[in-house]
Design a protein around this nucleic acid. Structure first.
Lengths: 218, 218
DNA sequence: TATACAGAAATTGTATACAAAATGCAATGT
DNA sequence: ACATTGCATTTTGTATACAATTTCTGTATA
């Protein structure tokens, strides 16, 4: 007898959590904006209970700041905060590449290569969302190869936090070629299992992003 | 006019959160054990609402596993899981030392030195909790010197997860001298702002812990 | 004996009600 | 005009009630 794993059900709190996170990342909920429970609950058509549980999770992810007996506000993004997060990402991305160089299976490498090719072929496209999606898939494929679930989760979360800036970065057509060549370097490192090259490559990649983000900020 | 900052208030959800986290870390709640909402709520003398919100946070910290419509269970700790967390800690501890080498202020360095001395003086003590507390304060003082709140929070969380093993490590009297000398090396790195030495020192320090934990596990 | 089914019990998911605290505003007094 | 006080409103914190689902258990049947 087969047990059918139905993944279709999702608790309301998670639906709300995803919705709010998306809204914050896309800028629909602006930094400093208050998250009024009753108002939000009515807007989303749910009660306060699942809404509150979603806010707890957003709080721990750092997207929302809680003040006891005052409520939740969308966390502000300062330059300092971004730099802090980038420092952490750099350290963990280097670890990820190192692990991936050891552990990537043939199947995983093929998958990574395939995504890299798609991205290369689409590098002149104007479909930013598609490009962004490919970029995300490329990096998540590498995370997956680390075989470290905790690291995968943390990196996914850290990346998400600069989503809106990443989109801007990808729009910058003049930097596309650079992005493609950086990806290629990363793949080379994985193919030759050269952890040191991998670390360098990913560091340069993040530094490019950092530069682009800094340009955007002022 | 002086404003008195009263930090005495804490929402029930946070009290519950801390209580449960402590219970899990100390092993009072064993891996695989179910967290029944009504039962726990009665035991703690609170209603289900704050309890549930606490569980959401524990979930994101990785201490409990949720299965929709089935409830929460204490996350199991496998060797693989420990190694995964240690890999992440190593990467972030190295980053922390590097940042601390750049940023530690004179006051902070004095504080770190002071804790180091206390720990050295107490190295023959049998008061494990006091020793553990000093060790924790030593490392948190270094984290604080990074001036990166997000990193501080993440490292504190990662350390907590191996609390019970750390205690065993500290009990091992034969390794005390080693621990003291490792700390001394870390302080030296901070004093001379030698990031490379710092990385090496902290890496060795964590490797020692890893070894001790592995010995404990079988 | 093993299995399938039905119903009961237990448990989580969600909504609502009530309590406590903070905020805003107007009235009052200086 | 300005500060202060007190009240009403808003908002969060907590508890409880109800709904939906799952799990357990016992019984009947092959």
């Amino acid at each position: 007898m087969l047990t059918i794993v139905q993944q279709e059900y999702m608790p309301l709190r998670d639906v709300v959590f995803n919705t709010l996170r998306g809204a914050i990342i896309k800028g629909e909920l602006k930094p400093g904006e208050r998250l009024l429970e009753i108002k939000l609950a009515e807007q989303l058509g749910v009660s306060r209970t699942p809404l509150r549980e979603a806010i707890r999770k957003l709080e721990l992810e750092g997207l929302v700041v809680m003040v006891p007996r005052h409520g939740a506000t969308v966390a502000g993004i300062t330059k300092k905060h971004l730099m802090d997060v980038l420092d952490i990402r750099r350290a963990l991305e280097e670890l990820a590449i190192e692990l991936a160089c050891e552990r990537t299976t043939a199947v995983q490498l093929a998958e990574i290569r395939s995504i890299e090719k798609s991205l290369k072929d689409a590098r002149s496209s104007e479909d930013f969302f598609a490009l962004s999606d490919l970029d995300e898939r490329f990096h998540e494929a590498i995370y997956a190869a680390t075989n470290n679930p905790r690291l995968i989760q943390m990196l996914a979360n850290l990346r998400e936090q600069m989503y809106r800036y990443r989109l801007e970065y990808i729009k910058a057509t003049d930097k596309r070629q650079k992005l493609v060549s950086e990806h290629n370097r990363i793949v080379k490192a994985l193919e030759t299992k050269d952890a040191e090259l991998g670390r360098k490559a990913i560091r340069d990649h993040i530094n490019s992003q950092e530069k682009a983000i800094l340009e955007r900020i002022e």
